[in-house]
């Protein structure tokens, strides 16, 4: 799992690539927490998680997303998800993640 960040005028884009499971979850938590904590200085802010290159995700990934939502939504940070496809998209839909982190195109 690797995360690359890119700032645009409207949002911070986090490009995730690889497998999001129990083995890689801690890296994802730490990376997102470090970067999103800095964003608080300029809140309200928007973060887009680009799942286009995530090749596998299980319920551990859902826990990671819920954790980031609980931590950062109260600080005015909006998190959205884009480009999740196939199996990953199905899990995000099934677990209701898109209700709190909208799916954008």
């Amino acid at each position: 799992m690797e995360i690359k960040y890119k700032s645009t005028d409207s949002a911070l884009i986090a490009n995730l690539s690889g497998e999001l499971d129990e083995c890689t979850a801690e890296y994802v938590r730490m990376s997102l927490d470090t970067v999103l904590s800095d964003l608080r200085l300029s809140s309200p802010a928007k973060v887009v998680l680009d799942f286009g290159s995530v090749t596998f995700m299980d319920s551990t990934g859902i826990g990671v997303l819920l954790g980031r939502y609980n931590k950062f939504s109260k600080q005015g940070i909006e998190i959205a998800i884009k480009n999740a496809s196939g199996h990953v998209d199905r899990i995000l839909k099934m677990t209701g993640i898109y209700e709190i982190m909208p799916k954008i195109s």
């Binding site: 979850a25 299980d58 319920s59 551990t60 859902i62 826990g63 990671v64 819920l66 677990t95």
Partner: peptide, 11 residues
């Protein structure tokens, strides 16, 4: 607290 989703058996 450990950010478990509780969705493992459901999946």
């Amino acid at each position: 607290k450990d950010e478990r989703s509780g969705m493992g058996f459901t999946l």
